[in-house]
Simulated assay, not measured.
Amino acid sequence: MNILFLSAAVLSLAVCLIHTFAGGRAIAVPLLKASDLKPVPKYVAYYCWHIVTIVLGMIAVMFLFAGLRPSSLDLGWVATALVASFCLLGLVVPPLKKQKYSHMPQGWLFLPIMLLGLIGGVV
């Protein structure tokens, strides 16, 4: 059993739930209510919202399997690579676009998961 991957699974699930419930109210609902957006970009963005929900859930599942089954180490590395890329994107884009992290904090949510995945992959 890999406690670090299991911890990453719990944090990943938390991020998925934050995205789904808090983010849904703050982002998805206003997106669908926006009357100034044309239907295609509005519904494509909404579809992407659901893709992100699925990916976040699957990352938690991958970390869970990697934590419970030593033979699933590759799943832990795949989940870590995904989380690392999301972390990097979320930490680099705000300064490049002159945005505030308070407006786009997602990268920071992935940082502890990435660290747990990296350490869990080598222990």
Score class of each variant (00 low, 15 high):
Leu116Arg: 00
Ser85His: 06
Ile51Tyr: 12
Ala60Gln: 04
Ala8Ile: 07
Leu13Arg: 01
Met58Trp: 00
Cys87Glu: 10
Val29Glu: 13
Ala79Gly: 01
Ala34Leu: 04
Ala9Ile: 02
Leu115Val: 08
Ser35Leu: 11
Leu73Met: 13
Gly76Asn: 08
Gly67Ser: 01
Ser7Ala: 14
Leu32Tyr: 14
Cys16Asn: 03
Leu31Ala: 07
Phe110Trp: 14
Cys16Gln: 01
Pro30Val: 06
Lys100Tyr: 13
Val122Gln: 12
Gln99Cys: 05
Trp49Asp: 05
Val44Lys: 08
Leu88Gly: 10
Leu32Phe: 14
Ala60Lys: 04
Gly24Met: 05
Leu37Ala: 08
Ser72Cys: 15
Tyr101Ser: 13
Leu37His: 12
Thr53Ile: 03
Val40Thr: 13
Ser71Tyr: 06
Ser102Cys: 07
Ile59Ala: 01
Tyr47Gly: 09
Val10Phe: 02
Asp36Tyr: 15
Phe110Pro: 00
Arg25Pro: 02
His50Leu: 03
Val10Lys: 02
Pro41Asn: 10
Leu88Glu: 07
Lys33Ser: 11
Met58Pro: 10
Met1Thr: 10
Arg25Ser: 09
Ile119Gly: 06
Ala81Glu: 09
Ala34Arg: 14
Ser102Lys: 09
Leu32Asp: 07
Leu118Glu: 01
Ile18Asp: 05
His19Gly: 13
Ala84Met: 08
Val93Phe: 14
Val44Arg: 06
Phe86Gly: 02
Phe65Ala: 07
Leu4Phe: 04
Lys38Trp: 05
Met58Val: 13
Ala45Pro: 03
Phe21Pro: 01
His19Lys: 12
Val123Glu: 05
Trp108Asp: 06
Ser7Lys: 11
Val10Met: 08
Ser102Trp: 00
Thr20Ile: 06
Val93Ser: 12
Ala79Phe: 02
Ala22Tyr: 11
Leu109Ile: 03
Ser7Cys: 11
Leu4Met: 05
Pro41His: 07
Lys33Gln: 15
Leu88Asn: 05
Ser35Glu: 15
Thr20Leu: 13
Leu31Gln: 07
Phe65Gln: 05
Asp74Ser: 15
Pro105Val: 01
Leu4Trp: 00
Leu64Tyr: 02
Gly117Tyr: 11
Leu68Glu: 02
Phe21Arg: 02
Ala14Asp: 14
Val55Pro: 09
Trp77Arg: 02
Leu109Glu: 00
Ala81Ile: 12
Gly117Gln: 10
Ala45Val: 10
Leu13Tyr: 06
Lys42Glu: 15
Ala9His: 01
Tyr46Thr: 04
Trp77His: 00
Ser12Trp: 02
Ile27Cys: 09
Gly107Asp: 15
Gly57Trp: 00
Val15Glu: 03
Ala8Leu: 07
Ala45Trp: 13
Gln99Thr: 04
Met58Asp: 14
Leu32Cys: 07
Ile18Glu: 08
Ala8Glu: 08
Ile54Met: 09
Leu11Gly: 00
Lys100Gln: 15
Lys100Val: 11
Leu116Trp: 00
Ser72Val: 14
Arg25Ile: 03
Val123His: 10
Val52Met: 12
Gly120Pro: 04
Thr80His: 03
Val52Ser: 11
Gly121Cys: 03
Ala84Val: 13
Ser35Ile: 11
Ala84Arg: 04
